[in-house]
Design a protein around this nucleic acid. Structure first.
Lengths: 336, 336
DNA sequence: AAACGATAGTTAAACGCTTAACTTTCAGCC
DNA sequence: GGCTGAAAGTTAAGCGTTTAACTATCGTTT
């Protein structure tokens, strides 16, 4: 592989000049610039990133961290979308993406991850940090590396406005006339975002005169199967229910399936709503009413924020508006 | 950050000794080993990966390449599953994952990607290389970097047995008594795997006395919407159809939706099959009969193969068996 | 007792780049 | 014509590892 020195020789200048030309440091003539660029082409020079990293202390790598805890991250369809947003911003700036999926057992981060953080191998970190007890970013911040959290609480973070999402959803069902609403929830404090969502739902219901804690609830684990199981339980114990409010789309899909099995027509007999607007939500039968939390935007914003920090700025944390997506799975209470 | 030298000083040995102890090179006493290890702990030493990479020429990074072409890679649910398999193998061996999504326009790879490959920043590459005209691995192989392809044709590759998948699917429909089968396809030669799949379907149909080319076909683009559109066209022009064979799950989901709209009961009036067994396939209504192509296994196998190559071996390319998953969307022709 | 081979550790060069500090050149000015 | 200061390059010192080549020690063998 040709090195800087080869280029320098070919161009008849010093390696320092070549380096400066390539990094656009001022103070050299146009003639030199062209000479160097030509030489780069002639010898087929490509910078060695490891050498550059060692010398400059910057790697042009940013790590995306998906803690592997509770719900296996790889089964979360949002991940890929967030990643897409991040990737778009990074490629634009010539940064590369390193993927890390640290294990978190009993609140302890795995050793490899800690080492990676310490290794000086990345300029910044973006974490899908939705788990309150997995403070994935703590070692990063301690090390003084730029860090942005998506869906978590940190100095710099990007969050979807789950509170509003919850309110919108509750309001939507209330407007359709539903008073007998069942909730398919998850354990408390599993996820910061979900807690916010619950707060929003509570507020929305209260605005319509309903008290969340008085509604029938079943606790699932975000999975499709748990949604089906919860729906079965709720509908058996509370046949009067006309709506099921599910805290994510996958559980809603499970509920939809279960309703179908039980012969409940959706939305005529039973309205079902989800949360997330995963791709599949648009093509269930009937399509799912849900809330789109704009994961793509979140990815973009998080990356932009990170680059702002790297530029020495101190950006504000962002809250991303969500959007109620009304589809066929919700309808008027007591509909024909 | 403490360096090797700090450790060496603390332990009262040379940096070379420290380095060797840490890399388990033979020839040092247990006493020295302990002394060094203790010193490492005392000063909180973590190796600098950039320096290690520069010096040793190995980075402990392997790149996963998802060419961004035709169907945006980020909308393919398989990606995440493959990634999970690769990740598991890599973390076991202390390797890190770099994500690259090169753009491919008119058969040309983007410049950044080429640079990345040349930059010496990775020890190996795994490509989701299903696009024949995007020879993403070519520059990698030329550079002499270990490379494994998933779903492509390369010296080392991992492929699902789509041919058998196609046969199984065709056979399944034939056994259910279907003779009027419509095909929801995609343009030819878009994807090596899909071409194989078509070959399998053709063979399976032929074994039952049907000729693929005589069946009604509509051409989609893998998306849910295109599946719905194709189904609409086919069912209108060929109301006699009792089965729709779709080349992927997403198009099958679209077809399912469309059948529902048209009032065709599935599977009583119309059987629909998919391909891929994406997570959502299990929870459509009715659940989708499809073929699971074992993407997780593919990820695992590809990574293992890559590490074998890095170990100096010359592994055989693998074909991964697929599995027909019969669910509720397919039933006897002319069912009640 | 000399020679030898294994074992245990050291020295120092190399990896390819960046960058602070320095030198040279030259236009502009009094 | 000498001085100044900006512009254009160069020199060389790192960055933190790895590793080939070397030295030193010590227990065996002849």
């Amino acid at each position: 592989m040709p090195t800087l020195e080869d280029v320098a020789k070919k161009a008849g200048v010093s390696t320092a000049t070549v380096s400066k030309v390539l990094s656009n440091t001022p103070y050299f003539t146009e003639a030199t610039r062209l000479k160097v660029l030509q030489a780069v082409k002639d010898v087929g020079y490509v910078p060695n990133l490891a050498a550059r990293a060692l010398s400059s202390g910057r790697t042009q790598i940013i790590a995306v961290v998906f803690p592997h805890v509770y719900d296996p991250i790889f089964s979360d369809p949002r991940v890929l979308v967030v990643l897409e947003g991040i990737d778009a911003e990074c490629r634009q700036r010539g940064y590369n993406l390193l993927l890390s999926t640290p294990r978190v057992v009993e609140g302890e981060l795995d050793e490899n991850y800690l080492q990676l953080i310490q290794s000086g191998y990345m300029d910044g970190v973006i974490a899908l940090d939705h788990v309150p007890f997995a403070a994935v970013l703590e070692p990063v911040v301690n090390k003084g590396i730029a860090a942005v959290s998506i869906g978590g609480m940190a100095r710099y973070s990007v969050n979807s406005d789950h509170y509003s999402g919850g309110r919108l959803l509750a309001q939507h069902l209330l407007e359709l006339g539903h008073r007998n609403i069942g909730l398919i929830a998850v354990p408390e404090h599993i996820n910061v975002g979900t807690d916010e969502l619950m707060r929003g739902i509570r507020a929305g219901l209260r605005a319509g005169g309903l008290e969340l804690d008085c509604l029938p609830q079943a606790v699932g684990d975000y999975s499709i199967d748990s949604g089906a199981a919860c729906a079965a339980t709720l509908l058996e114990q509370h046949p009067e229910l006309t709506a099921l409010l599910c805290l994510n789309d996958r559980m809603a899909m499970g509920a939809l399936q279960q309703a179908h099995r039980l012969g409940r027509r959706v939305p005529a007999d039973l309205s079902i709503t989800g949360y997330d607007d995963i791709p599949a939500a648009a093509s269930t039968i009937p399509p799912l009413t849900t809330v789109n939390q704009q994961s793509l935007t979140a990815g973009h914003e998080a990356a932009r924020m990170l680059f702002d920090i790297l530029d020495g700025q101190t950006p504000e944390s962002k809250v991303i508006p969500v959007e109620l997506v009304v589809r066929g799975s919700s309808g008027p209470a007591g509909g024909q």
